[in-house]
Design a protein around this nucleic acid. Structure first.
Lengths: 223, 223
DNA sequence: GGATAAGAAACGCAACCGTTCACTAACAAG
DNA sequence: CTTGTTAGTGAACGGTTGCGTTTCTTATCC
């Protein structure tokens, strides 16, 4: 019954322009030639994930809406729901694609340069759009705690281990105090970068990391 | 016209029980004797602010609703709107009341104990319900940036200065390396506490702070 | 040329905002 | 003790927003 009603409403609307051939009803004379091509498949999917990341990074998760995602990706909600059954699924997928890739640990021969290189990698991640989105995602109380824990484990722990490894190599060379090779010390650099990010906002300048290494970490590590 | 309609509707409802003396219309036989007394003024106001803090601390700002606040405070929306013109005003007021009080700086005669005392004060604030609410407030993208900056200035800066003062006194006693008396070093303790809070969640144990002071800060400060 | 999927525009539904109203409890003045 | 004033309670209201769905038209691929 409701179907018939809606059909009737549409019929009334249709009569406004469709007096004869419905092909003549297309009104848009292509005001924007850039997006004239209709994207499909993988192309559209990455566009939607991209738009989601952008919105999360700029406005946070609280104001993320499916309508907003569809609009930002220049598509319709139907195309979004064809791929993800709900907003949460879309969000999780977008965040998974935002995780920074693991890279080979640097090996410069000096602790200072190893640590500096590692913290610069972290800085790059934090300052990127994905980093902003991840930050908004992880510090949002409405997100499932278990999911956040998973992300933390997958993102933070490998990097912590890499830092500890760099410290251990420094100890073997005699650059680093033996009992400074532990998790507590390895946390200092990342914690200060996150702290600076939260207090002053992005982007955290490269000079901050250099200062951090030379004025805090090196004095802390010295034998 | 709309008024007349609503009055009519209410009239219909009223006829269900009010066949005669309206005094007999009170239906609630006081199922909850604890809240039987009707609170007013300051009493009710703090109850509402309290409920707001609770909700923010547990569920975040994104899901904070006026209906929820009124329900949690066991009152009606009207009483809330009588005091605060909008949700934002209520939120700002609640956060202002959540700010931890400034205390006199400790003076134990040793840097270690001064710093430990200061970080324990910070720990207490972070672990409290107000601390959770403030965290949810400050890291929410939907909150006005300028407001967050104001809170940061009022909360963080005095404590940073107190920490730097403690370092300076340690330097005068010869306990602290002269060029370790700066903002960058003073940030280390608070940054690590915040980091621990964000990574592992509340409460941050007291043992963490002790370990932090003895394994990180003291080696960093030593001459 | 036909199958498939994108685009666009509605729809029903639910939650929430801010407002309003009638009723009632608390309090103060006489 | 009675009376008048103030303010809390509880329930609606209109309006807005967003979710997830549906339908129709149209572009793209095979």
């Amino acid at each position: 019954m409701a179907k018939a009603l809606r059909a009737a409403v549409r019929g009334i609307k249709a009569k406004h322009n469709a007096s004869g051939n419905p092909r003549l009803a297309q009104p848009a004379p292509d005001d924007d030639a850039l997006v004239s091509h209709r994207r499909r498949g993988q192309d559209l999917e990455t566009a939607i994930l991209d738009a989601t990341l952008d919105l999360v990074a700029t406005s946070g998760i609280g104001s993320l809406t499916m309508e907003g995602v569809a609009a930002a990706a220049h598509t319709g909600k139907a195309s979004v729901y064809r791929r993800w059954p709900s907003k949460e699924d879309l969000l999780v997928d977008a965040m998974t694609h935002a995780l920074p890739p693991l890279t080979d640990p640097p090996d410069t021969g000096s602790v200072r340069d190893d640590v500096l290189a590692l913290l610069r990698l972290m800085l790059e991640a934090v300052n990127s759009r994905s980093g902003c989105a991840l930050q908004a995602f992880m510090f949002d109380n409405s997100v499932d705690k278990a999911l956040i824990q998973t992300v933390k484990k997958r993102v933070m722990e490998p990097r912590q281990q890499t830092l500890i490894d760099a410290l251990a190599k420094g100890r073997d060379r005699g650059e680093v105090r033996a009992d400074a090779v532990n998790l507590r010390t390895a946390e200092v650099g990342p914690a200060l970068i996150v702290h600076q990010y939260l207090m002053q906002g992005p982007p955290v300048p490269d000079a901050y990391v250099v200062q951090l290494v030379d004025n805090v970490l090196m004095p802390l590590l010295r034998p």
